[in-house]
Design a protein around this nucleic acid. Structure first.
Length: 609
DNA sequence: GCCGTTTTCGGCCCGACTGTTTTCAGTCG
């Protein structure tokens, strides 16, 4: 189906049919992307769960949603390829394949329409209250006719809820307390990894004041380096667990203790952020670290493997199970836990049940992931000439201190008037200055003549070709017309890639975490163009951008497109964000070879030829 | 709903904690 055909779709299509509803924020002009199919299957899982459907059926929808979201090829393309079948994909059987086909071909799914008519959207909001799952929410809906958070609040205040079977006075209180939490959106509760890291450093500092701690490590999505973190998990081995919990409770940010048992304690910080602490025996530390680092999906596979081997894995260790006997095998370190199952010690960033087991099985080894030390240059930064704060020389000094060998100065072009963007004349003057700086620096460090040139709303570049031709490095960026329809914005970016003077596309999707959705850009088309033209794509390392995301980074690798990880620094401190980009690249399974700026400038230049 | 050296049925990861119970179901991670 062409973009035009998709765009011509009417508002009665299932996914565009509720244009005014919050249920779908996406425009109905979209093709049926993998992300969208995944979103639909997740919604079906939510609705089925609420209805009390077979939990394994619910899981099948959730698993397939995750697989589809992570899939590097468009399902619509596979569907239209006569030699391929959707059922090749793990977790997609005959039924789901038929549903995907119906979605792609007709943009509709009667089953979803039926579920939606049975379960009002507002009822699903009840599940966001901590402690309220599908079973209890269903009772509230059925017995008291509750359909919204507001109605539930009133019922609790009127003490109508405590009369229900399985509910009590305490539950009413918990529901009322959880109301504010439930009313905030999921994105408001997740913080950038970089912010989580600041919090972690503070927390670790506080905990180190407690004597008797033998081992201490953060687990969870923080350890996996996810771009945003929803809560923190801390693991401790200590001589006195109670003392550790007391120390934990005395952390300055703690607002309330949610639970405290003998091995587990959860607190909520002033900011609403939750932190969990677990105290485990020394012989279980590795097993617990493995377990609580997750991801959940990764662990499900690990446990399945254990079972095949006649073993069992839980947070206490690896056990050999014979008849009704259980024998502890190992658990002190993560490495031992994985080794007992014949698996390599997966770097936490890879533990997402995407390709890591495939790599371990088929290649017998994991990719050697890129590290911060591998980076030799930074190809995106600004100076005081536009909206940066430092001079060229100050950026050079800061880059040298961080062990870099070259940088590109890429200030904004004239279209970005708010940032005092450069016209041809000022840009050429800046490049003269760079020549002088390079002379002064001599060998050992190189400053490249660069520009972050806007891709204009109507298409085309913001500076003339004869100027761009003189640059060492041209990054093309969309800053305006971000809301344009898919066909238009994709066309602009593809056209920029085809411009012979453009080296790379910066922040290719334009998303800002927790704040702004990506452009409606067709990334498959962008990647095909980049691969075809031998151009680079940026992984912008700014913690609010991290654009490309990990899935797109893996897609780029599959297309053979080299990525440049850059800081987009606006001052000298801004150069520090490189490590967030590295974390993102590692999550995508990228090696040193996949990242272009691990090379010298001379080597990097050859990649484009 | 998926999957198969258990192959068209019968499994599908596992434990801690809480509240409402009086032995356990629901929720969470």
């Amino acid at each position: 189906m062409s973009y035009a055909a998709a765009a011509a779709g009417k508002c009665d299509l299932i996914l565009g049919g509720k244009c005014t509803s919050a249920r779908y924020h996406l425009s109905h002009r979209l093709l049926m992307s993998n992300a969208r199919i995944a979103e639909i299957f997740d919604e079906i899982a939510d609705l089925l769960e609420f209805k009390g459907a077979n939990p394994f059926r619910v899981r099948a929808y959730r698993n397939s949603a995750r697989t589809i979201r992570n899939y590097s090829e468009s399902l619509a393309h596979i569907l239209h390829d006569a030699d391929r079948k959707l059922t090749e994909i793990e977790g997609i059987g005959k039924d789901l394949a038929a549903k995907i086909e119906m979605l792609v071909e007709t943009n509709r799914l009667p089953m979803l329409e039926e579920l939606r008519s049975e379960v009002p959207e507002s009822v699903l909001a009840l599940l966001r209250i901590p402690g309220l799952g599908p079973k209890k929410a269903a009772v509230l809906h059925k017995e008291l006719g509750i359909e919204s958070l507001e109605q539930l609040k009133q019922a609790c205040q009127a003490q109508e809820v405590r009369g229900l079977k399985g509910f009590g006075a305490k539950t009413e209180t918990l529901i009322l307390e959880g109301m504010v939490f439930a009313q905030s959106t999921a994105s408001e509760r997740r913080i950038f990894w970089a912010h989580a890291d600041e919090l972690v450093q503070e927390l670790l500092k506080h905990m180190r004041l407690c004597s008797g701690i033998i081992e201490m490590e953060m687990a969870g999505s923080y350890r996996r380096g996810k771009e945003t973190v929803g809560d923190l998990d801390m693991l401790v081995v200590a001589t006195d667990g109670d003392k550790v919990m007391d120390q934990f409770a005395s952390f300055g940010e703690v607002a309330e203790t949610i639970v405290r048992g003998s091995t587990k304690m959860s607190v909520r910080l002033e900011s609403g952020f939750q932190v969990d602490l677990r105290v485990v025996p020394e012989r279980s530390f590795g097993a617990a670290l493995q377990y609580f680092t997750g991801s959940k999906e990764h662990n499900v596979i690990v446990r399945g493997r254990a079972k095949q081997l006649g073993m069992k894995v839980n947070e206490w260790g690896v056990f050999r199970t014979d008849e009704d006997q259980e024998e502890y095998v190992t658990g002190k370190t993560e490495k031992e836990v994985y080794a007992a199952l014949g698996l390599p010690e997966f770097p936490p960033e890879l533990r997402e049940a995407r390709h890591e087991f495939e790599w371990a099985d088929e290649q017998g080894e994991l990719p050697e992931l890129v590290t911060l030390k591998d980076i030799h240059g930074d190809l995106h930064m600004h100076t005081e000439a536009t909206d940066g704060k430092a001079t060229i020389m100050e950026m050079v000094e800061a880059a040298k201190q961080r062990g870099l060998k070259y940088i590109a100065i890429t200030d904004h072009s004239q279209r970005v008037s708010m940032a005092n963007g450069l016209d041809s004349e000022r840009l050429l003057a800046q490049w003269d200055e760079i020549d002088k700086v390079n002379q002064e620096l001599g060998r050992g460090f190189l400053v490249l003549k660069g520009i972050e040139c806007d891709i204009l709303e109507k298409g085309g570049m913001d500076l003339p070709d004869d100027v761009l031709a003189q640059a060492d490095w041209v990054m093309a960026s969309v800053h305006y017309g971000q809301k344009q329809p898919r066909e238009k914005i994709t066309g602009r970016i593809v056209e920029a890639i085809q411009n012979p003077h453009v080296s790379a596309i910066s922040h290719p999707t334009g998303r800002l975490l927790n704040k702004r959705e990506a452009y409606q850009v067709d990334m498959e088309a962008v990647m095909r163009a980049a691969a075809d033209q031998g151009k680079f794509l940026e992984l912008n390392a700014h913690p609010a951008r991290l654009d490309l995301n990990d899935i797109h980074c893996a897609m780029a690798k599959a297309h053979g497109i080299p990525l440049v990880i850059s800081t987009d620094a606006h001052n000298t401190e801004g150069l520090n964000v490189m490590r967030y980009g590295i974390l993102q690249a590692r999550r995508a399974g990228l090696t040193k070879e996949d990242v272009a700026n691990t090379r010298t400038w001379t080597q990097l230049k050859k990649l484009t030829m």
